[in-house]
Design a protein around this nucleic acid. Structure first.
Lengths: 209, 209
DNA sequence: TCGCTTATTATACGCTTGTATAATTTCATA
DNA sequence: TATGAAATTATACAAGCGTATAATAAGCGA
């Protein structure tokens, strides 16, 4: 009698959770948190709403899982270039250029990032993730800076390196923000150029492309 | 028969709008955009939900007004010491120091800002507000930078000033972000010191406290 | 091939949402 | 003190929300 019941394929728990998280991230990115309703998420993931509750006790749990994954994977994108084997000055240059161009600079990920930042205030586990990812990136940056000064025979002490890493990280964060929020207000290549010049000035070095 | 109808006092249009905006900001700061429902806002402001529609055509309009006011408040706070009559180098130093200390550095301000940013790319009017307030701040910064170079007899052309303003704005944004999100990770006075050193390095000047 | 587990769908429920509109109360003005 | 404009409250409504639970189908192991 009921011919129209949806056919489906059973998937592994991991695959389905990933698909639901993907759908959630996509919706928040393009429509903000309000767009991430259980029905929209389910439709985007190609399943029915009830399935969400089978994998996540509450919708908030799904949102939290989505933020967590976005934050941990987004940082990787930025220093993927460094993992490629570059170190010191060449690694630093590569990191700056990568951080300030697509796909890291991305209007869609701005809403995700802002949503995460706000959830940090209320959710202790999110705060832990925030600290972890922030320091991971800043420490990696500090290593590159340290290596750079060793390369040119002018090693710096830890306190100085800390200050420089905080400053350079701020430049990258700030430029990323400006570029992602107002992508049409900057010419192609302008942000990487400004980033290289600024980081170079802060470190007292010439950073050329 | 209906004894329980709420008594009220007629207020000026400005006062009521301010109260509604205050309530909106308070709710977004503590509970995110989702917490800013018309009923919550009305309760927080001590009125009934219908009144919101009397002052704002749509809820989005109220959110937009709240966004604009928050950004204006932050800009005034950052420029509080500059507006006293400072210009050029002394204004620049003052701006950096004020921007990177309380009350501009503030977890609540960050939460509010993040709450609004989430809807910037979805909502055109929010995007317009973002653009407007961003350029207000950056342009004022560019004026200070321009004055500084004129003071020392080395005026810069517009393209150079633009790049320097973008870079210095990024430093301030980034440090403000880091300080507001992780207040316990920086010693008192550390961020202003780093800010002065970094802005000074970018401009090729010595900025001392 | 048959059962059994469970992943998945389907349906229902109560609550909240934003908005529209009608009914009241306030207060300045005459 | 009476009048009228409009600020404010009250009520209603349809749509959408998250969640709970029952029914179904898929696919693995025997």
């Amino acid at each position: 009698m009921n011919d129209s019941r949806k056919t489906f394929k059973r998937e592994s728990s991991d695959q389905r959770q990933d698909a639901l998280i993907d759908a959630t991230l996509s919706l928040i990115a393009s429509g903000g948190p309000e767009a991430a309703t259980v029905r929209n998420i389910a439709m985007e993931a190609g399943v029915t709403p009830g399935l969400i509750r089978h994998y996540f006790v509450t919708k908030e749990d799904l949102i939290g899982a989505a933020y967590e994954r976005h934050m941990t994977t987004m940082r990787y994108a930025a220093y993927a270039t460094v993992d490629g084997g570059l170190s010191g000055l060449s690694g630093l240059i590569s990191l700056v250029k990568t951080s300030l161009a697509p796909p890291v600079i991305d209007a869609r990920s701005l809403a995700l990032w802002a949503g995460f930042i706000q959830s940090v205030q209320r959710d202790k586990s999110m705060q832990a993730i925030h600290e972890k990812t922030y320091f991971q990136f800043r420490d990696a940056l500090q290593v590159l800076i340290s290596e750079t000064f060793i390369e040119i025979g002018q090693p710096k002490d830890k306190a100085a390196l800390r200050r420089l890493a905080i400053a350079c990280n701020a430049v990258l964060d700030g430029l990323w923000l400006e570029g992602s929020a107002l992508p049409n207000s900057f010419e192609t290549g302008e942000l990487p150029a400004i980033g290289l010049a600024s980081v170079g000035a802060i470190l007292g070095l010439k950073l050329k492309e």
